[in-house]
Design a protein around this nucleic acid. Structure first.
Length: 356
DNA sequence: CAGGCGTGGTG
DNA sequence: TCACCAAGCCT
């Protein structure tokens, strides 16, 4: 029997999705898409891609932008280190490569935010190189196609799948082949209830032959996520003629790195006294909260590794000191400061509640 | 190298 | 409802 790639490529020619970054022959557009698509669905990416291309139409424009502008456009897309790394990489590409991506997998991988998958995707799609691009789709498709029993999210499983990806790559056709497998994984060989009835390579599928396609891929279970409660301070003051709100900039590393938020701290109980002392400990911020005050907003959110409920309280600053990572922001300028989903929700609530 | 890192969709 | 999942990378 001939290799499945001919059937797959035939299917792809008739069924490939039309996407804003496909067929552009614009290497920057493809680069943008590959970064945005890391761990993110196509439907989610499309509006962000369009806005990004409008505001930063080329590498030079991106390199010239400020980090805050970059994060602001990225806001809501998640995994914000992608934006900061992309920004850094754009500057490097301008300075070191004259604004053009190196057509070399080893050099590509030196750029921040470009790992093994992305380097393979760019090399194959942009430069027609014979490089596999093993993403979540290809892992799942290959795990079914070859009935891989090793967990695909284990180190050994990854190693095996890269080997499989190299061995099955049809020479000279890597660009279409990689994207065909991605499209197949996204539309046919989906995680749950794979549509084997319309799959162009079902006849090649070992898992299907054995009736175990729904048992592939095998994955090792994840840990259960803890649940925390935080208290956030919403401090609004009139300074001169305009209203200001107190925001804190998050540390440069870790969760929502470099983004802005309402000063907040983890609490165990419900008392406003505990909330005030937790805020003081976290920021050296002395706030006064009224006993029995209802929160301005309560926001629940699930991050990758924990859940949180944030109770945001309107409060006043007592005379004592303010820490250094705190800044007064014009209420009308809140939108210019990149925030995570929780704090953006609080900000919206504050604006809708302010009859100023 | 196992775990951290966002958000929205889905069954 | 809620656990799982998605065009991964970094440390």
């Amino acid at each position: 029997m001939q290799h499945f790639s001919s059937r797959l490529l035939n299917w792809y020619n008739k069924n490939k999705r039309t996407l804003p970054w496909r067929g552009h022959r614009n290497e920057y557009a493809v680069w943008v898409s590959e970064i945005m698509l890391q761990q993110t669905r196509v439907e989610t990416v499309i509006p962000y891609f369009k806005k990004w291309m409008k505001l930063f139409p080329n590498v030079r424009a991106l390199a010239k932008a400020s980090e805050r502008e970059v994060l602001n456009v990225w806001e809501g897309l998640g995994y914000y280190s992608r934006a900061r790394n992309f920004h850094k990489a754009a500057k490097i590409v301008i300075e070191k490569y004259g604004g053009k991506l190196p057509n070399d997998v080893v050099e590509l991988r030196k750029l921040p935010g470009i790992g093994r998958y992305t380097a393979g995707a760019l090399a194959s799609i942009l430069f027609g190189m014979d490089e596999p691009a093993l993403d979540g789709n290809l892992k799942r498709v290959y795990a079914r196609l070859l009935d891989v029993k090793m967990p695909i999210n284990s180190a050994d499983g990854e190693k095996l799948l890269w080997k499989i990806a190299y061995e099955n790559l049809p020479k000279g056709k890597a660009a279409d082949f990689n994207q065909a497998l991605m499209d197949l994984g996204a539309r046919i060989c989906v995680p749950k209830n794979p549509r084997c009835g319309v799959c162009p390579i079902a006849r090649d599928c070992e898992a299907k032959k054995r009736g175990v396609q729904h048992l592939r891929p095998v994955k090792v279970a994840k840990k259960i996520v803890p649940h925390y409660v935080h208290a956030a301070a919403v401090v609004v003051e009139r300074i001169g003629n305009s209203l200001y709100v107190l925001l804190a900039k998050r540390p440069a590393r870790g969760l929502l790195a470099g983004m802005w938020e309402f000063p907040n701290a983890r609490v165990e109980g419900e008392s406003v006294g505990e909330a005030a002392s937790a805020l003081r400990a976290a920021y050296r911020l002395n706030v006064r909260m009224k006993r029995g005050l209802n929160p301005l907003a309560t926001v629940e959110h699930t991050y990758s590794h924990f859940k949180v409920t944030v109770n945001a309280f309107r409060c006043e600053l007592s005379k004592a000191a303010m820490g250094e990572n705190l800044k007064w922001i014009r209420l009308k300028d809140l939108g210019k400061y990149p925030m995570g989903k929780v704090d953006r929700a609080i900000a919206r609530k504050l604006k809708s509640d302010s009859h100023f």
